[in-house]
Simulated assay, not measured.
Amino acid sequence: MVISFLPTLLFPPPSSLFVTAMSILSCLSLAHSGYMETKGKHIQYSKFFNVANSKKPTKDQEIKLASRNGMLLLYTPAFLVGLVSFVAFRGQDLRLLMVVSALTIHFFKRVIEVLLVHKYSGYMALEAAIPITLSYTISTATMIYAQYLSEAYVEPLVDLKYVGATLFLIGITGNFYHHWILSNLRKKGDKEYKIPNGGLFNLVICPHYLFEILEFIGIACISQTMYSVSFTIGTICYLMGRSLATREWYVLKFGEKFNKDVKALIPYIF
C-alpha cells in the first residue's frame, strides 16, 4: 500500500544505476554511522573523539589541520558544487533551481559559520577530513544530478516544493540561531565546555540537529526524488544517534549539574 502511494509523492526512480546505488548506500552508511555514534565510535572531528583520544599518542606522520581550516575543507567543495550547478544546469525547471539553491545556501551558511561563528581549540586529522569532505561533495552532486534526471518524468501528483521551502527556511534559521548560542557559551581563550541554555536548549541538548533535520526534510520535499528521501532518512538516523551520544557525553561530564529532563533531540519525547 505504501509503495503504491509513492508515485503520488515522488518522482519515479531514474534509470541511472549510479543514483539507485547511491540512494541505498547513502541511507545505509548514514544510519550505520548514527548507530556507531551510540556505541562510542565517533567521527573524528567531534569533541567526543577529541576527549576520548586526548591522552593517546599521535602518529608521527599524521597530517593535522587547524580545526578552522579542517572544517572549511569539509564544506567548501560541496558549496562549490552548488555554485557550479547554477551554471551547468542553467535554464532548467524551478524545482531543480530550488534544490540547487537550498543545497548551496546550506553549505554557504556552514562556511560562514566556520569563518565567523564557531570557536576552535584543536586540530583535525587530514585523513579524517578527506572522507567526510568526499561524502558531502558526492552526496550534494548526486542529489542535484538525480533532480536533473527527474525532469524526464511526470511531476508527482502532490507538489511539496513550497512546503519544503518553508521547512528549509525554518530549519536553517533555527540551526544558525542555536549554533550562535553554542558559540557564545565560550569567551575568547576559554576552552572549557559548558551546558548550553537558551532557545530550545532547555528542552533538548541538540536543537541544532533538530533544525538540521528540518532542513533536509525541506530539501526532500522540494526535490521529491527517491535519492533525496533516502539521504534524508539516513541523515535523520545519523543525527538521532549523534544526539544520543551528545546527551550521554553531557551527563558523564557534568553529572548532577545536567538536567536529566532535557531530552536528546525531540522535546519531551526523545
Rank of each mutant, 00 (worst) to 15 (best):
M1C: 09
S4V: 04
F11R: 01
V19L: 07
V19S: 00
M22A: 15
L25H: 07
C27A: 14
S29C: 07
Y35D: 09
Q44E: 15
S46W: 08
F49L: 06
F49V: 11
N50G: 10
N53Q: 09
R68P: 14
L74C: 15
Y75M: 14
T76K: 13
A78V: 06
L80C: 04
L80E: 02
S85L: 02
A88V: 11
G91D: 00
L94V: 14
L94H: 15
R95N: 08
I105L: 11
H106C: 03
K109Y: 14
E113R: 05
L126P: 03
I132Q: 08
I132E: 03
T133H: 02
M143R: 10
I144S: 01
L149G: 04
E151V: 13
P156R: 04
V158R: 09
D159K: 15
D159W: 12
L160N: 04
K161I: 03
L167D: 00
L167H: 00
L169S: 08
I172H: 00
I172K: 00
W180P: 13
S183Y: 10
R186E: 01
K188P: 14
K188I: 15
K188F: 15
K194G: 04
I195A: 05
G198N: 12
N202F: 02
E212S: 05
I213C: 01
C221S: 06
Q224A: 03
Q224G: 04
T225W: 02
V229I: 02
T232Q: 08
I236Q: 12
C237W: 08
Y238V: 13
L244C: 12
K257S: 12
V262M: 06
A264M: 07
